[in-house]
Design a protein around this nucleic acid. Structure first.
Lengths: 341, 341
DNA sequence: GAGTTTTTGAGGTGCGTACCTCAGAAAACA
DNA sequence: TGTTTTCTGAGGTACGCACCTCAAAAACTC
């Protein structure tokens, strides 16, 4: 017997199509006993709803909002491009994706933006935002008004989000630490820079990095994190100063964006050869850095994977269909010059 | 205007539905002039066929054969499992996948097995096989009888295959070389082992490895490749001898399967600490090796990605639909203990 | 057992496409 | 001009499902 249909269920259960339909779509007006009878047949025949036929019949449109931070981050730029590519025809059908930008470091502004989203006009939300109580509450409110919600890149673990699409940041930091330790044989100091420690992923990367370093690589001294607050000049100055003032500096771990400035500063300082620089996220800048040898390695999460995964998960959640978890696990990629895509 | 349908095309072009249908499905019996007229409207309105509706109407079944080598290889085992998972409901619909095993190193046997496939019963073939003229011809024959053909893991570049799903083996070898050079600071010799150099991917890995080593890491001497011909005892013996006879041995590059034996031999020899071992493909054995520290790194291609990619590509080829290339590019993953999935 | 409420059945329509038939129009040929 | 061949149109059915209506049956109530 091939793929049972609703007709088969009806025949087998001795009820009408309408009743099967009511049971399958949880519509009211069916006795408990009948529901059980139909369910039993469904289970026995192994009926699975044909999602594409269902969507066709229901004229389904998946309307998703993607909330991404504004600002000059190259990573967010490539992520945005990946989302656009993954949600445009003919790859995606019945999909209407709205990209909304939210302020990077202003919880209040983020909340305002999220309030501006009419829950009735969306079926799902994917959001990349720092973890603050206000943001969490705003997300929870959208969830409560019926949206499927996934967090992207940076998790909000205590919110009501349905799923997190991204990498384990602690493990990512540990990986960076391992590479720093192995690639960088000379004893000395390691500078750690980022734009902000306020988002959960940055914090966790630092934790993982420190853990790996202290466990295995005691020949390296990790300096306190320096934040640039998205200010390119500050980032450049910090790196310039460090290379000038610290003769023992042998490595830099860049946890966030601003890699363009780091590379530039290092080039000017003439310290390029003696430094092992490890950064996050493949962007035009970091790719160039890998090619030219200034960057030793990049820890990456594939933006295409992130985008497609978020879309798939949101779709699946809307359909209340079972998830294919293995496909949604975003890998922590190690990229060196030789395996650049 | 929302998603134009065939009806819109018909109305706009001033022809009937039947004619639009004939044009869209390349059926005969339409004048050139009319075809052009319809095509123009299709382009102008940006019509894209609704694949799910089309498949529904056509009761389409995609029937694919996956030809994978037999034998005890753990990698092929995990790949096989990934294919099964990716082709079973409810993840995949209208999909009938047949896994066929082919002899590993017997071109004649492979050809026989492929001859046994009735082209009328399949829409597509994915094959992982060594590159020999006989195999190539057998593949070409299937292609000519109308199947979509993709090569998997190991390419047959001079065949008529439509697509190759897998990684660039030269780059993979280069990556292994880079890691060997960076992780392994001590000068000395590097042993290279594999089960066979007869398949294209092994050969190319070796090429890439040598290139990277000779360009950058002159402190390491790479020994000639030793083949085990799928004989576990031979593999173990080779590694045992090398660790015993070569005091300068500092690294092992394992290009193929047989990692269980390598790890075992190294453990027994007591040389575990002084050796940097790099292997290919994540399997239970290599995962355990990474966790326990015997393996320094593993170069991996994600079997789930391979499986899903092959299926997607075959489907796309059957539909004659445009391909979303970025999604099909399989990455060369570097796996260390810290970023184990 | 009459009246009320709750369940169920039968049937239809539509989603966007594929594929079929048959008649009639247009073009090409003699 | 008539005849053949080549196009084209109108219409239908089907795919698997969602969602609707209306009437009939069954299950309750008092």
């Amino acid at each position: 017997m091939n793929k049972p249909t609703v007709h088969d269920i009806a025949k087998e259960a001795g009820v009408s199509l309408a009743t099967v339909d009511r049971v399958l779509n949880a519509r009211p007006g069916v006795r408990e006993a009948t529901i059980a009878k139909v369910q039993a047949v469904v289970d026995r025949l192994g009926y699975v709803r044909d999602t594409s036929a269902a969507n066709l019949a229901r004229q389904r449109q998946y309307r998703f909002a993607f909330a991404l931070p504004e600002g000059p981050s190259q990573f967010v730029g490539t992520l945005r491009a990946a989302i656009k590519e993954a949600s445009s025809p003919p790859v995606a059908d019945r999909l209407a994706v709205n990209l909304v930008t939210i302020p990077s470091h202003d919880p209040h502004g983020i909340v305002q933006r999220l309030r501006g989203l009419n829950p009735a006009r969306y079926d799902g939300l994917a959001i990349m935002a720092p973890e603050t109580p206000q943001v969490r509450d705003a997300v929870d409110r959208l969830k409560e008004s019926g949206l499927a919600v996934v967090t992207l890149v940076s998790d909000l673990p205590n919110s009501m989000r349905d799923y997190f699409v991204g990498i384990n940041s602690i493990a990512a930091g540990r990986t960076a630490g391992l590479l720093m330790g192995r690639f960088n044989g000379r004893a000395g100091e390691v500078l750690v820079v980022t734009n902000s420690l306020r988002s959960r992923d940055s914090l966790e990367r630092r934790l993982g990095f420190d853990a790996a370093m202290s466990e295995e690589f005691r020949h390296l001294t990790v300096l306190p994190t320096i934040e640039s607050y998205d200010d390119p000049r500050r980032m450049e100055a910090v790196v310039c100063d460090a290379t000038a003032d610290r003769p023992n500096l042998t490595g830099i771990y860049s946890m966030g964006s601003g890699n363009t400035q780091i590379v530039k500063a290092v080039q000017h300082s003439g310290a390029a050869g003696r430094l092992c620089i490890i950064a996050h996220e493949l962007t035009p800048t970091t790719k160039a850095g890998l090619r030219s040898g200034e960057l030793a390695a990049v820890i990456n999460q594939n933006v295409g994977h992130l985008a497609r995964s978020a879309l798939r998960v949101l779709r699946t959640l809307c359909d209340k269909a079972p998830m294919f978890e293995a496909q949604e696990r975003v890998r922590i990629e190690i990229v060196v010059r030789e395996n650049l895509p």
